[in-house]
Write a protein that binds this DNA or RNA. Structure first.
Lengths: 145, 145
DNA sequence: GATATTATGGATGAAATCGACTGGAGTATT
DNA sequence: AATACTCCAGTCGATTTCATCCATAATATC
């Protein structure tokens, strides 16, 4: 992991669909060299996957919410989150509550359905997202490296 | 937006670095047709960007946390979240608190520094992430479409 | 049935990939 | 300390694969 690798990572977080030639120009290498470095970053698991970021509101998903949960049975709740298509993230947390779950759904109606479904597993506290001033910032190197 | 577009979206959320030929085989179209559909999805803003998902723990970022904030001055706090490199998401929320912010940082020490920095803007409540059973599920069509 | 939209096929240009080669850093040998 | 050896990362050039463009065909719409 040198600063060229960081430069590659930053670039790919911003745009994963760019040619190795473009990427090479930005980081000062030829395309085979960049390809080799990217391959190593993938093998090391530094790059986990390449994905497309979509706009939920253009796909009839107009409500995003975070749900804080205190489930009675953690295993069953985790299973539930994996099966629910509207749940896009689920984090086990320390502090107040045990889980923080992100839901992207059609409307407040479907959100209510979702919350009702949650009630079987515990006590949900719902935080509806109004806007997202910071959506997906790239991970950058810490100052000392 | 027909089911072929949805199929394309699902595929690209899973892997944005695949050739239009591969994608075409999966959705039953030739590569120029797929390219045209992808171009339209991009133009419509359905696809916002293509990114690489990285593993923070392999980049010396071993602590992830969500911070619930009740800032005194919202504008100043939003500005702060945009400038802080460790903040990767920030959502304005309804319900308890006004903001939910995601932080990816080196250690509990740097998290503490971050929390101290937050104190200038309001009262932070920190939820440290222990694990993420669901990391980044793809957005899929609602049942009625 | 006319028209607009979307898909296909083939040709062209660009990018990815592979192998051979080069240069430099580090290490061992004398 | 100088020389030679090894290893690693990069470059270059050739080949294969892919993206793009355009003309044409198929499909859907009214």
């Amino acid at each position: 992991m040198d600063e060229i690798d960081w430069s590659i990572l930053t670039q790919l977080q911003e745009n994963s669909r760019q040619t190795m030639i473009e990427l090479g120009k930005k980081v000062g290498l030829t395309s085979p060299s960049v390809t080799e470095r990217v391959r190593r970053l993938e093998d090391q698991g530094v790059i986990k996957k390449y994905g497309a970021l979509v706009a939920p509101e253009k796909l009839n998903k107009r409500v995003t919410a975070f749900i804080l949960m205190e489930p009675k049975d953690c295993m069953k709740y985790v299973q539930f989150t994996k099966e629910q298509p509207d749940i896009v993230e689920c984090h086990r947390i320390a502090g107040m509550y045990s889980y923080l779950t992100k839901v992207v759904t059609e409307s407040v109606h479907t959100l209510e359905d979702h919350i009702n479904a949650c009630l079987e597993y515990g006590k949900p506290t719902t935080l509806i997202v109004l806007s997202s001033p910071v959506e997906q910032k790239a991970i950058t190197p810490s100052v000392n490296e």
